[in-house]
Design a protein around this nucleic acid. Sequence first.
DNA 1: CCTTGACTTCAAGTACACTTGAAGAATTAG
DNA 2: CTAATTCTTCAAGTGTACTTGAAGTCAAGG
Lengths: 146, 146
Amino acid sequence: MLTVGELAARTGVATSALRFYEERGLIHSTRTPAGHRRYPRGMTRVVAFIVFAQRVGLSLEEIKMELDTLPVGRPPRADEWARLSATWSERIAAEIEALHRLQRGLTDCIGCGCLSLERCHILNPGDRMASRGAGPRFWMGDEPEE
Amino acid sequence: MLTVGELAARTGVATSALRFYEERGLIHSTRTPAGHRRYPRGMTRVVAFIVFAQRVGLSLEEIKMELDTLPVGRPPRADEWARLSATWSERIAAEIEALHRLQRGLTDCIGCGCLSLERCHILNPGDRMASRGAGPRFWMGDEPEE
DNA sequence: CCTTGACTTCAAGTACACTTGAAGAATTAG
DNA sequence: CTAATTCTTCAAGTGTACTTGAAGTCAAGG
């Protein structure tokens, strides 16, 4: 069993962050009679999962939802971890694709030197923006409604 | 000349955001005798630049520093815009590369099912983490000191 | 002229992911 | 045994990028 300080030392995640994760229900601890946290050694894996998932771009809320699908009481098996991270690959691929699109758009815009909201087809995919009232700056990622 | 509402309509950026940008010194306006903001039409281009730069991952502070290198009083030329966005391409490329590394690491970790902070060479690039006190979770992007 | 809508400032609120500090209890090293 | 370290909770603060609301002013249409 690890104390919060030891878990922090092994994961590189601050004790304050670990307590925060516990408060948000991402990790759980047993307590000593004095109320000190004790973590099973497998908890390092959970923390690693959290950090990795954040790196992929998930919010703590999303990570919690994924972790909640894990069995309680028993350490997760390798295939269960794999199931959780399966969607990450797609997510990363999508992000890479978005960056490629941005890259292409950037080259185009440097090439034409426009950077004009009215004319640039990169910044202005629908060739007409700010039409419908609600959505601000949908060329930051939102689709312009097809 | 455009009012703040017109600029918002043309850019898709909320008036509150435009005022916020002005407060932070990213954009500037002249005022009518009554104190209402008036923007030259080229301001849409500046706002587009800001949104684009944010999309690339720059903070408003960084964007301001880039915009501060532009000449005042005269609308920037195409080559000046191009100069500003020149570094973006590298930045995007670096981000894509990081995601590719993450992707590879993810595949490896699913393959070996480890996700262990002590053994995984993806999460633990230096094969020894949490060594030096200061840096928490340096496998989220920090380098493990070479 | 009068109402409606757009504009003004300023303070405070929001969301995310934590960190910091205070006050005190428990554990560990010497 | 004592001093230093680590732990506890809880409240409040941090940074980024805004948004929202209040209270009031200005401009345009009928």
